[in-house]
Computed example of a mutant assay.
Amino acid sequence: MRLYRPKSWDEALAVRSEHADAVPIAGGTDVMVALSRDHFHPPALLDLSLIPGIADWQEDGDRIHLGCGTTYTGIGERHALRLPGLAMAAREVGSRQVRNRGTIGGALGTASPTGDLHPMMLAADAEVGLCSVRGARWVPAWQFYLASGSERTALARDELIVGVRVPKPTGPQHFVKIGQRRGVVKAVCSVAVELDVRRRRARIGIGAVGDMPCRAFVAEDFLAAGLDEQAWDADEPPADDLLRRCGDLAAGGLDARTDFRAGAAYRAHATAVLVRRSLRKVWDDRRGEEVSCGSA
């Protein structure tokens, strides 16, 4: 097995262009586990850990840019106030040791359907930065994840993930998952919701249910159509029957799978329940924020 250790992005992209079979690695929490189990034999590894600044972040207007080398711990501890939903999801990943090593680029590159960050990436309307010797592009998270063939993402063979940019939330965010044990076991269903007060819309991301993370666009559109301006400004959350219908629509649009962790019927039911509860939670949080601001 060959090992490439570039010290700049230009060098890394050149290697990637010439050796598309080289597997990128930074934290190694996915790649090293697969290698240790002896069922993964890549011809080469492309170690990005020596490139300066891959864990840097910056604030750009109404967006936060996170480098691909940003760890789960970094997200959960450094960005809890700026990106609360993403931090909430990051704190649910594995053990402390895994969170200290695992990176946002590795999570996106692997694109495991059960990955905790993916639903929040979707709900937060994040974009993924992809770069090659041909140039750079930003791909919305809802277009990044794929279910066609063997390709799980929109990442081309000569591209590398350089980071993400995430809009600052304009309303409350919430992430929740169901698993046999929290953290150390993969989720059987996960849901992320952001209440976008500015656009009068709630975004819903779902993970671990089907073969790819996905946005619940039908449920989002139904909720947006069912609420007028007065309802958005009201102190009370939407009616239970409206939230229940949103949960049912979110679950109904999924191709739920059965595996040793859970059956398709259970996953669909859990999705509907979690969507309904999460929508109520962000509305309750929004009301709490308004009360706090008024009291101040």
Rank of each mutant, 00 (worst) to 15 (best):
R96Y: 13
D38W: 11
H39W: 14
I161T: 01
W232D: 04
L249Q: 05
H269M: 13
D285I: 00
A256S: 06
R267G: 01
R152K: 15
V282T: 01
A156Y: 03
S49K: 15
G179I: 06
W283I: 04
I161L: 14
P6E: 14
E11T: 02
L81T: 13
E229N: 12
A124H: 06
L146K: 15
N100V: 01
C131I: 04
C189S: 15
R91Y: 03
L130K: 09
V15R: 10
G135F: 06
T271K: 02
K186L: 15
A34T: 02
V162K: 10
V23Q: 09
E229T: 12
S49L: 10
D248H: 09
L195K: 03
A22L: 11
L146T: 11
Y72A: 14
V185L: 15
G129V: 10
G247W: 07
S295F: 06
P238N: 07
R277A: 14
L155I: 12
L117H: 09
R267C: 06
D228F: 06
I104P: 01
V197K: 09
E236W: 08
L66I: 01
A80Q: 13
F40G: 07
G263D: 14
R287V: 03
A234R: 02
A14Q: 14
R134I: 00
S148A: 14
D255V: 11
D47V: 03
L83F: 07
R198C: 08
F175Q: 07
G69R: 10
E18N: 13
G247K: 09
G135W: 07
G253E: 15
C293Y: 08
H41R: 13
L35F: 02
V93K: 05
H65N: 09
L274K: 06
M212Y: 08
R198V: 09
H79I: 04
R99G: 03
M121W: 01
Q180V: 12
R181Y: 03
A154D: 09
W138S: 07
E236L: 14
M88G: 14
P119E: 06
D116V: 03
A231I: 04
T29R: 12
A234M: 03
V31E: 06
R91Q: 11
H65P: 02
L223P: 02
V188Q: 09
Q230C: 04
S292L: 11
C68L: 12
Q97V: 08
R257V: 13
E59R: 15
D221A: 14
G69M: 12
T170L: 05
C189T: 15
L254A: 05
A208N: 05
M88Q: 15
A147D: 12
A224H: 10
R201N: 05
D30Q: 09
F217P: 00
